[in-house]
Design a protein around this nucleic acid. Structure first.
Length: 224
DNA sequence: GCGACAG
DNA sequence: ATCTTGTCGC
């Protein structure tokens, strides 16, 4: 069986980006939301071509989850994907899309990990610090940490631990379907992240904000 | 030294 | 992420 192979990343670049993450890490605040959200956003990026990135932001009413806005921005890909540094590749373009929203959300659900990262700076935390907005991440696969398989029924969850530290929760959003990984990003705590992820689930593996952002990314890609 | 590795 | 056909289960 083939295993994904990641091309060697430039040591100089990695050292610089790592320092940037360490600095940003000092700004992260894991606290509950000031108030129950009224608007929640979801975002996602796709790559129409290897050198083009298309980022989407969807805005949904909470807790009804009705779509109220959808925007996107297309830009150039600047750096290759390197595990642990995803934010440096996608955040710049995501910010451009975010600026196009007419209304701003109370909290943002990001596709990827929050603090469930080696240096606790996954893309959700990274975006949260840049925007100084409450964020949390919902990822489809593991990056860092260990966990016990949650029960096969929807709603089951189990802690995601790294060095004995709680960095996220593995949540089964749908019966017998692979779970998602939920972790706080910035200005959000684990309880809130998991609670919102559950409240945004509508019978699909992915919570609505992320699922719709994914869906619209596909639609917008065709409009090009 | 040998794996693991979000999107 | 992206490519890409069929196939299993409800």
């Amino acid at each position: 069986m083939y295993r994904p192979y990641h091309p060697p990343a430039d040591p100089m670049v990695v050292r610089d980006l790592t320092q940037q993450q360490e600095e940003m890490r000092t700004h992260v605040r894991l606290v509950p939301l000031a108030a129950e959200p009224t608007l929640i956003a979801g975002c996602d990026s796709s790559f129409p071509t290897p050198e083009t990135i298309l980022s989407v932001f969807v805005l949904l009413r909470y807790p009804s989850l009705e779509l109220v806005e959808k925007v996107y921005h297309v830009g150039p890909v600047t750096i290759p994907y390197v595990p642990g540094f995803l934010a440096f590749r996608e955040a710049p373009n995501l910010l451009k899309a975010y600026e196009k929203l007419q209304q701003k959300p109370d909290v943002i659900m990001v596709d990827g990990h929050g603090i469930a990262h080696k240096r606790r700076m996954g893309i959700a935390a990274h975006l949260g610090v840049l925007l100084d907005m409450p964020t949390f991440g919902v990822a489809k696969s593991l990056l860092t940490g260990r966990y016990e398989e949650p029960a096969p029924t929807a709603g089951s969850r189990s802690p995601l631990l790294d060095k004995g530290e709680l960095i996220g929760e593995v949540l089964r959003t749908k019966d017998k379907i692979l779970p998602v990984f939920v972790s706080p990003g910035h200005r959000c705590d684990q309880a809130t992240a998991t609670r919102l992820a559950v409240a945004c689930t509508r019978g699909y593996k992915l919570p609505e904000p992320t699922r719709l952002a994914d869906h619209w990314a596909e639609q917008f890609k065709k409009e090009l």
